[in-house]
């Protein structure tokens, strides 16, 4: 008993179809194309995916190697080392830059505490979570891999399944709190960012709360985001 019931559940579910069936892992056919049926489900705009390290509009790195993200990370998966900025070739504005930056995705729980902690909006998360690896060293993203490219867009690594348009929405406005840490902040502004420019400040918190409330009454399935 109990043993065959388990198979029963499986059989029943088989008949029901699979909720994630649209997504087949981005496998390509012989022509190197992804099947048109292989669709990712839409994600809410604040979903937490793999990180990016952003740059300023002039191409300077935003990360200053302060290790606050590493300090706050509950999974202890960020490793940062700072260094004096080379005077003739500064990597970031100011004295210090992130010299080593690594995130171990075998441990990251995508809580976004690092994003909250970052004083410069250097680390944010993209929406991408469709990535898998076959060895440990691929799983540890280095600074070279995390840094956005010359256009400010995330790099597409071989083991990641990026689809057109997914590069968007990776930048600073993912943050939930104001730099002052106060819930009642008004109109947070963001620093300019390569590829996105200066984003509009967020709504004051009370207006935002109201808009979220409205949103929830209209669409109960908030999980599936706006586009569903």
């Amino acid at each position: 008993m109990g043993y065959f019931e388990g198979f029963g559940v499986t059989l029943k579910k088989w008949g029901e179809g699979v909720t994630t069936k649209e997504y087949r892992g981005g496998r390509t056919n012989r022509k190197g194309e992804i099947s048109s049926k292989d669709q990712k489900a839409p994600k809410p705009e604040r979903v937490h995916g793999r990180h990016v390290l952003n740059k300023y509009e002039d191409g300077m790195e935003k990360c200053i190697g302060c290790e606050l993200c590493a300090g706050v990370c509950p999974a202890n998966c960020i490793y940062v080392r700072g260094k004096d900025n080379p005077v003739d070739d500064p990597k970031s504005p100011g004295e210090r830059f992130g010299y080593v930056y690594e995130i171990n995705y075998l441990r990251c729980i995508h809580c976004d505490m690092c994003v909250e902690a970052c004083p410069t909006e250097a680390i944010t998360e993209s929406k991408l979570f469709e990535f898998s690896f076959t060895n440990r060293s691929d799983a540890i993203y280095t600074k070279d891999e995390l840094l956005v490219d010359d256009k400010g867009m995330p790099q597409h690594l071989p083991w990641e399944d990026w689809r057109p348009g997914e590069d968007q929405h990776t930048s600073g406005w993912m943050r939930a709190t104001a730099p002052s840490g106060k819930a009642s902040y008004l109109g947070t502004g963001w620093s300019g960012e390569l590829g996105y420019g200066v984003r509009e400040g967020d709504l004051p918190q009370d207006e935002k709360d109201a808009s979220v409330r409205d949103h929830v009454t209209v669409d109960e399935h908030d999980d599936h985001g706006d586009h569903h």
Binding site: G65, C66, E67, A70, G71, G82, K83, D84, E95, R96
Partner: peptide, 9 residues
């Protein structure tokens, strides 16, 4: 010691 570490590590 400049930038060699932060107090919490």
């Amino acid at each position: 010691y400049r930038f060699a570490a932060r107090p919490w590590d």
